[in-house]
Design a protein around this nucleic acid. Structure first.
Lengths: 124, 124
DNA sequence: CGCCATCTACTATAATAATAGTAGTAGATA
DNA sequence: TATCTACTACTATTATTATAGTAGATGGCG
């Protein structure tokens, strides 16, 4: 499943992923930027149209919940970026991450471990 | 410097990065998708307006060249994605890459080596 | 030297994103 | 029960993206 989110949509999905099913007001409160109530509602509608969220009636209000898992969104976005600027190569992408000068030796060691673990649990 | 490219813009920049300075026709030929000449021109204009490319007159034609290096675009895009879906964490991002099931053991080992090398040449 | 092909400049259009206002409804409350 | 207020539905606006057409200029060729 391909999950394509705009920046703003991602921030809204984040609220749903973090808090779970939420009403429009709750999402609005959960956002860092102060957006109009109707703006938040519009975004949720768009997301619903894309089938990324659904809602249940709850009294007069609607309670929205994420239909797509965060990981799916992450995976899609990574794949898209890799295609767009890294010739579809995960390795090239990783190389860019690890050659980032902001990373400390500690960061690198933790990354090392992440790959280590993965290599060990990998079946082939 | 922040380099934000749309998908299509990225494919055009790719041609410039690969072939070096090119005329509109050359870019058009270098693109996988067959776009109208004027479409390619329009995209180059947009990129010029964003200061990502510049051009020199060459006879009646213009020869466009990239002003931003590919690495800068990659870095910007990675940072943006990390912010958007990975809470700004490079590690989280990396974790997602390496847990991708499409990666073979070989891929992982090469990644391992990339980090190894980086760790060794790292000053702190 | 006149015409044609090639180029740029300008304009256009449909789609999507980001943001929000207005109208109308229905539950809660005084 | 009448009113207020929170909530959704619908509409609107501005910006950007993606794509391309038309007009006008110009250089090369026959």
């Amino acid at each position: 499943m391909d999950v394509v989110l705009t920046d703003r949509e991602a921030t809204v999905m984040d609220v749903l992923w973090e808090r779970g099913a939420s009403t429009v007001s709750e999402v609005q409160e959960g956002l860092r930027d102060r957006l109009a109530y109707t703006t938040v509602l519009t975004i949720l509608r768009t997301l619903e149209q894309k089938n990324y969220v659904s809602h249940l009636e709850e009294g007069r209000a609607h309670r929205y919940s994420a239909l797509v898992p965060r990981d799916a969104a992450r995976k899609s976005a990574l794949a898209a970026l890799s295609e767009k600027l890294f010739k579809g190569s995960a390795e090239l992408l990783l190389t860019h991450i690890v050659t980032d000068n902001k990373l400390t030796r500690d960061d690198l060691e933790r990354m090392q471990k992440i790959i280590d673990d993965r290599t060990r649990t990998r079946r082939r």
